[in-house]
């Protein structure tokens, strides 16, 4: 099976372990990920803060070359995106142009500069959607080589794979990761922060405010062994400032923040190196011990 794949800028840099583990996990499912050739940045949260048209054109360019690519390669007209911010930016264009022909026309006027044309027949899919819908626990269970018994995991979804478009999970009380966590023998940590905001780019533009949000999430995660995420921005915000936050609130809130395909991949027999576990900024001694015991 083949999927067209849009990694996005983070997965080439700060979230390289997300890229590595996604590719390795999909291979275990018998899937080839074909990277979209010549892809560009989706605009992140920068384009929409500066120009609406630019925030439409940057994702649209990717969709236009993706439409061509799926036709040439004769694969299904979908594009798989692991980063939630990229996913939403691309999804927005997919959905808006369906009901706004004027917008599509304007986008195409710009894309014409590169002799590209967007028709609007490609479907944007989040990695989590693909894992739970196209594979699910039934595809994971028979492939599990290590059961992480007594490993308590807090599933963290963040915002942009859930809202505003309701595609594969409840936008306020998400649960789609739970059967996956259970499939690898771990336990789901019961908390209410799964769909709350990590502060996103406020961590750069209004750091004090961003820190409040991550602090609230990390405090609530106390008692869990690890947090599992599906977004590079969430992962970075929750992972990178733990020393500061611990100092700030006078308690140790350090916790490992892993990507979903890292956990699933390890359970399905991949090595720590193959899922890039050495690249996460924080992996606590406790979690290292658990993985050393099993892997």
């Amino acid at each position: 099976m083949k999927y067209l794949y849009y990694p996005g800028c983070s997965l080439e840099g700060t979230a390289i372990e997300y890229n590595r583990s996604t590719q390795a996990l999909m291979k275990l499912f018998g899937v080839d990920l074909l990277e979209l050739e010549g892809w560009n940045c989706c605009g992140a949260s920068a384009a929409e803060s500066i120009s609406y048209l630019l925030s439409m054109v940057l994702p649209a360019r990717n969709l236009a070359i993706a439409e061509k690519a799926v036709k040439d390669m004769d694969i299904k007209n979908e594009i798989l995106v692991p980063c939630s911010a990229c996913y939403l930016n691309l999804k927005k264009v997919e959905i808006k142009i369906r009901s706004q022909p004027e917008l599509l026309k304007k986008i195409n006027t710009v894309l014409n500069e590169e002799e590209l044309h967007l028709h609007g027949n490609i479907k944007v899919r989040h990695l989590l959607d693909v894992i739970i819908t196209d594979f699910g626990p039934e595809a994971i269970l028979p492939r599990v080589k290590r059961k992480f018994k007594d490993f308590l995991i807090a599933p963290y979804y963040g915002c942009q794979c859930l809202r505003p478009y309701i595609i594969f999970d409840d936008p306020e009380a998400p649960r789609s990761m739970e059967p996956l966590i259970e499939a690898v023998g771990a336990k789901v940590f019961d908390w209410a922060m799964g769909g709350k905001c990590c502060g996103a780019s406020l961590m750069n533009t209004k750091k004090e405010v961003g820190m409040e949000l991550t602090t609230a999430i990390l405090k609530q995660a106390k008692g869990a062994d690890a947090i599992i995420t599906v977004c590079p921005m969430c992962q970075m915000n929750l992972d990178a400032y733990q020393n500061n936050i611990s100092k700030r609130c006078g308690e140790n809130i350090r916790i490992s923040v892993l990507y979903l395909p890292q956990l699933l991949g390890l359970a399905m027999g991949l090595s720590k190196k193959q899922v890039g576990l050495d690249l996460n900024l924080t992996v606590t001694q406790e979690v290292k011990a658990i993985f050393n015991h099993y892997c």
Binding site: R163, P164, E172, A200, L202
Partner: peptide
Amino acid sequence: ALCSSCYYCTL
């Protein structure tokens, strides 16, 4: 400037 695009209000 403090909106972090969590989309709760839109939802």
